[in-house]
């Protein structure tokens, strides 16, 4: 994997996360909305960082899709939490891929972003995996789940 491929994958995941948290924040109230808004801002900041990294390499960062197919429609707080944890899991997997980048600074950024995703996810649902971002079979680490996808 080249650094550029990993950056593009992570950017696509962050675009999807920003979209999903926008929906979650719009459909929730109270502390859950506050949490979703904070997550929205955090993912937007990482998205902008990825855009800058891609642009600094002379490439054009991909723009977000107009809409994304969400795996869960957040009609209730439980569904909002379900969607948010799925989003964090997908973004964690995208950053795990990026930690294999040949660029050390990119690796470090991705590792920190993974920690942010996992702690945000724990804040929503107190569950911890031994190997976040990895599939059950650790022997071949590849992204285990995908973030929301744009509708085809």
């Amino acid at each position: 994997m080249t650094a550029d491929q990993g950056l593009s994958t992570a950017l696509a995941a962050e675009h999807a996360a920003v979209y999903a948290y926008g929906v979650i924040a719009a459909r929730t109230t109270g502390s859950l909305r506050v949490t979703a808004t904070a997550a929205f801002n955090a993912h937007r900041a990482r998205r902008d960082q990825l855009r800058a990294l891609i642009a600094a390499r002379g490439d054009a960062p991909a723009e977000p899709d107009a809409a994304y197919r969400l795996p869960v429609t957040p009609s209730t707080p439980a569904q909002a939490v379900e969607l948010a944890t799925l989003v964090e899991r997908g973004v964690t997997a995208a950053y795990l891929e990026l930690t294999a980048s040949p660029d050390t600074e990119v690796r470090q950024m991705a590792a920190l972003a993974m920690q942010e995703c996992v702690t945000r996810s724990y804040g929503l649902r107190p569950e911890i995996e031994a190997f976040p971002g990895m599939p059950a079979d650790v022997a071949s680490p590849t992204p285990s789940s995908a973030p929301p996808t744009p509708p085809s």
Partner: peptide, 8 residues
């Protein structure tokens, strides 16, 4: 990847 996952 393993170290990053452990860190998370």
């Amino acid at each position: 990847q393993l170290i990053a996952s452990i860190g998370a």
